[in-house]
Design a protein around this nucleic acid. Structure first.
Lengths: 145, 145
DNA sequence: ATCTAAATGCGAATTATTTGCAAATATATT
DNA sequence: AATATATTTGCAAATAATTCGCATTTAGAT
């Protein structure tokens, strides 16, 4: 497990350098957290995982932004009042959120490629559809009542 | 146009009463704004439309919440850092947002009914999928460059 | 080892949203 | 129409979420 972390770190270090971002301790820490937990995390959650020795809140925000801009993270839109992020590079997927306990499961949608096309056809004043945000809401088995 | 507004107001008044909410001047004003402008509006945008004589900010937030809870408004998730709302009761639709100028167009997706089902099948630890949020991003014709 | 642009910490500033409470008011009741 | 009462509102202040400015530090190039 120590090894796995280091393997990740090495990869992350390369990716960061490749994108022109410095491979700081803080950034590697952030990326490792996301690698360990394949779920969207808010800045606050990220901060809790990293602990008080980690980067300052402002730095976390700045890094979430720069890492997202460079495509190492993706911003996820879970409907709460704060943004969440997760590691990019995983297969394209969506989320299903329990409206009661906020548990999140990954979801894959086979008909997904057709969506952007349909959207573009449906809005005549648009020239391109570059992406979408699709999140599902419901109840997990524990919370069905 | 005066008449249309008043017709709306009468309907809204009934709906509010039916839901057990008082038909206050503020609420009718809010609903009329949303009726006039069939686009998602943030609290701040709503406030600008209503002007300084309208309800207090706190009241706008409270009403957005209560009207959403009772199903007269729907909360929309456009990825910004603040929530938007629009009038419920219109045909189910999604939005396409221009990443440059933030223009919003309505979008309808024919394969939509299949989505929730696919999501449920895809997440084995969930008992039900009750809804989803689907928004598209791209560039409008004016902003394609 | 040195240099430099990029990144960080810290505190303060914004922005977004919520809360407590007294005053106002929409409706049901008389 | 006047009254009673539970809801709603305004206001001010609290909290949460995010951003900014700037002096200091540091990763990576030389």
């Amino acid at each position: 497990m120590e090894k796995k972390c280091e393997k990740h770190s090495r990869e992350f270090r390369q990716q960061l350098r490749h994108k022109g971002l410095k491979a700081t301790k803080g950034r590697l820490g952030i990326l490792n957290i996301f690698a360990r937990e394949a779920k969207p995390l808010s800045i606050k959650q990220l901060q809790n995982r990293i602990g008080p020795s980690g980067p300052d809140t402002a730095t976390l925000y700045r890094n979430a932004e720069s890492l997202t801009a460079e495509g190492l993270l993706v911003k996820v839109n879970l409907g709460g009042k704060n943004s969440s992020y997760e590691l990019a590079g995983r297969a394209h997927h969506h989320h299903l959120i329990c409206k009661n306990c906020r548990k999140i499961s990954d979801v894959t949608i086979s008909i997904r490629p057709a969506l952007n096309l349909q959207a573009l056809k449906s809005a005549k004043d648009f020239a391109a559809v570059t992406g979408h945000s699709l999140e599902f809401f419901g109840f997990c088995k524990k919370c069905q009542n």
